[in-house]
Amino acid sequence: MKGFSQKTNSKLANVMDSAESGSGFSQTNSEIKIKSPKSKKRKGPGLRDVSITENPNRNKWRVIRWTFLLSVNFMFFASFYFDIQILEGSLSGSRLLGFHLADPFAAIQVMLASRVFNINLIIGVTTIVIVYLLIGGRFFCSWVCPYHFLAELGEMTHKQLIQKKIIKRNHVFNGNLKYYFFALFLVLSLLSGYTIFEVINPVSILSRSFVYGVGLIIFWVLALLLFEIFYSRRAWCRYFCPVGVPYNIIGRVAPFKVHWNISKCSNCKKCQRACMVPWVLKNTVNMGAADYIVSGDCTRCGLCLDACEDGALSYNIRYLDKLI
């Protein structure tokens, strides 16, 4: 854990910075400073107000989030294993105290493949859409998805391996790939009449493994994890996962977001180093274009909140704060 605290050595920081900027989404820091009109107002790196004490609780949100994630997945397991019937099913389709819930991507695949629009499924998807409109889109990813949890551990391992120079560098892909995958697998479902993606969907595979026991297909998930650890950091969640795409779209309009207080920010970029998706903080912290982290890929994980030593980042509700 200590290796990932914000006291990373400068070499690691450089390695990571160069890796992130290669994503095609963020520009280099020097460019931004020239382009951004607001950058003059900032205090600039290293000029942080001395009166601000260091954030004492560096893992606050991570601990809360992991507890939540593991509890949700444990509820799936316990509802079946101990027959307490609170959260029955798995992440592709479930029932919370009798109310239908369905994963949007899986449900759309089912509807396209079978060409049947089942009322329970529509209710389940609508409920999920409403819930995530309230709590913020890809909130699902970092607070519920069991693969995200494994990938987070994988990311830690990856960073450590780079630090120890066992791996030379991180490889990046185009962040739009997940949208192509989303479209591709929907078209394939429609044409073939099978939910093709569900065969390889690591989220539902893991969720089922949690509840009903492990099958051979778990090796596919492990292979994916090894790919992430040794080749491309967090590749699945960042670039490929089409399950996250509906949540991504919901997350753009969902008002629950991370707020960036520009007047407190010392532009140290520690949040960007902590952020699990390199382009999420681009619009705000890099470009100064918005008060809120508006990227659809923001999972509201809270790592940037933990990393920020200026108290510039906080959870907030967009529109509501202007109303009051």
Binding site: S79, F80, E88, G89, S90, S92, G93, S94, R95, A102, D103, A106, A107, V110, A113, S114, V116, N118, L121, S189, G193, Y194, T195, E198, S204, R208, V211, Y212
Partner: peptide
């Protein structure tokens, strides 16, 4: 069978009950 394969969302709720 074909329609069943495309309709099943693989959630396992039938198994639970």
């Amino acid at each position: 069978e074909d329609l069943f394969l495309s309709s099943c969302i693989k959630c396992g709720q039938c198994l639970q009950v």
